[in-house]
Computed example of a mutant assay.
Amino acid sequence: MDWMETLVVVVHVVIAVALVGLVLIQQGKGADAGAAFGGGASQTVFGSQGSGSFMTRFTTILAIVFFVTSFSLAVFAKQRAEVAGEAGIPVVQESSEVSAPAESAADQAAQPAEAEGGESGLPELE
């Protein structure tokens, strides 16, 4: 199962980088105003409207695959945690219990003074 998880992680990272690149390449809705006056329609590979639908569809497909790989990685992590729990390996979980507050500095300073004898906190000289 380790090779499958590794394959999904590699696909996940490649798709994440591809999604970032596709989003950065796409033009916003405001860029269409310049193309209306002949400013860019002749320079596009897919025509004046063709690249928008192609890029949008490709981005949608990559986003769907990204969500599927994210979900499958979550399933792999859950299975790994269950196997670790069954094998007796402690799984780190956050505790909701509140611990008792530590003693104040005044209380800690007073305890050694009382233990050494003498009210001044200094050892007695012989």
Rank of each mutant, 00 (worst) to 15 (best):
M1Q: 14
E5S: 07
T6V: 11
H12V: 03
H12Y: 03
V14P: 04
V20L: 12
I25A: 15
Q27P: 01
Q27S: 12
Q27Y: 12
G28E: 09
K29P: 12
K29E: 13
G30P: 13
G30D: 14
A31I: 02
D32S: 07
D32Y: 07
A33N: 10
G34E: 15
G39W: 00
Q43D: 15
T44P: 03
G47F: 00
G47Y: 02
S48I: 08
S48Q: 07
G50R: 00
S51P: 00
S51H: 04
S51K: 07
S51Q: 05
F54V: 14
T56A: 15
T56Y: 09
T56K: 13
R57S: 15
F58A: 15
F58T: 13
F58Q: 10
T59W: 00
T60H: 08
I61Q: 02
A63R: 00
V68C: 07
T69Y: 06
T69I: 02
S72R: 10
F76P: 02
F76L: 04
F76K: 05
A77K: 07
Q79T: 13
R80A: 01
G85W: 08
G85V: 02
G85Y: 05
A87C: 09
G88V: 06
I89K: 06
V92P: 03
E94D: 15
E94L: 11
E97L: 04
S99I: 14
A100N: 14
S104E: 01
A105H: 05
D107P: 00
Q108W: 09
P112D: 08
A113V: 04
E114T: 09
A115L: 10
E116Y: 06
E116V: 13
E116S: 14
E116L: 12
G117T: 02
G117F: 01
G117S: 05
S120R: 11
L122M: 10
E124V: 08
E126G: 13
